[in-house]
């Protein structure tokens, strides 16, 4: 639908795309030309809003051009804030991402409830520019800021019983008005195998475009698993649990024939109602052709070995 929408952030506050890209080039130049003193990881500061400081670059970033800040923050699937693509941006005001705490439970030595700031602090923030492929056959390139999930999880010392990690977001219909309607069984549930969770590509994102994550993108903290369909990357997380058995996941519970636990991007396995062979890259305008979808969303070299011997047609 056609929507004229007020800007939640003043345009002057946003780093322009061109400045942002210039800065990245500058950083790349610095990295290549001058040997910086070996830097120890900087403790991550997570302000409530604005720019994030001390964000390191990462070799895992793609050099594809990121989508605009506007595309990334106005075209979202976040059913807790409404089922339309522009609903999350419109309803973002209701979500209160501070103060925030995360409960860690299950098969680990250090469990308990942690403040968001303490949760993030020991780590170095990294920029990860990733392709995002939605199960609905559209895609974007998003410059996330986050922390490798594995680094976070190791601090809780998972035991040998921890075969899976389960995630849940906040349940609070007054903050997430979409939860008033049973479009899905709330809370939303997602999970990964421990190997997927520990993989260096998997991050816990706290920002985008060098800034604190906007509410509609899953503030204050969301998963990003770039080789899986977007619905695996659960938003606004309040609960992390180490599990012995495969956890139930929301879309699989809702339509088991259409959405599997693994949900790896796979052009060979169609969704029962549409093809997954191609995708529409957001931002190309009216006449941009669809592009071919890559196995594992182009991250096969890094992650395909996680699934050796697994029938990807059956475990879709």
């Amino acid at each position: 639908m056609l929507i004229k929408r007020p800007d939640p952030i003043r345009p002057s506050e946003i780093t322009s795309e061109s400045n942002y890209l210039n800065r990245r080039q500058l950083m790349a130049g610095l990295a290549a030309g001058i040997a910086l003193p070996a830097c120890s990881p900087q403790a991550a500061e997570l302000p409530a809003e604005g720019e994030l400081a001390n964000v390191a670059k990462s070799p895992y970033s793609t050099d594809e051009t990121p989508n605009s800040y506007e595309d990334v923050t106005t075209y979202n699937n976040f059913y807790e804030l409404g089922t339309g693509k522009s609903d999350p941006a419109r309803n973002a005001q209701y979500l209160k991402p501070r103060p925030w705490s995360i409960e860690v439970s299950g098969a680990a030595e250090n469990t308990g409830t942690f403040d968001l700031e303490d949760f993030i602090k020991p780590h170095q923030l990294e920029e990860r520019i990733y392709r995002l492929r939605c199960v609905e056959a559209w895609s974007m390139v998003v410059p996330w800021v986050g922390i490798p999930l594995g680094d976070i999880l190791k601090r809780f010392k998972p035991t040998s019983d921890a075969k899976y990690v389960a995630f849940k977001p906040l349940v609070a219909p007054e903050q997430l008005p979409g939860q008033r309607y049973r479009t899905l069984a709330w809370p939303y549930r997602e999970g990964l195998t421990i190997a997927e969770a520990m993989h260096p590509l998997t991050i816990m994102a706290v920002g985008v475009y060098g800034r604190v994550l906007p509410n509609q993108n899953g503030a204050p903290m969301r998963l990003v698993v770039p080789w899986k369909y977007g619905f695996k990357s659960i938003k606004s997380i309040v609960s992390i649990s180490f599990e012995r058995n495969e956890p139930a996941t929301s879309w699989n519970m809702s339509q088991p024939r259409e959405y599997g636990f693994y949900a790896n991007v796979n052009p060979e396995v169609d969704h029962p109602r549409w093809s997954q062979a191609t995708e529409r890259r957001i931002g190309g305008g009216l006449f941009a052709p669809r592009i071919d979808t890559q196995p594992f969303n182009g991250y096969g070299q890094e992650v395909a070995s996680l699934y050796d011997g697994l029938d990807l047609r059956r475990y879709f």
Binding site: M1, L2, K4, Y75, K85, S86, W138, R280, I282, G283
Partner: peptide, 13 residues
């Protein structure tokens, strides 16, 4: 008039 089809114009149409 400042109208727009949004981030995914093909889908909107």
């Amino acid at each position: 008039y400042g109208l727009s089809l949004g981030a995914n114009p093909v889908e909107t149409l």
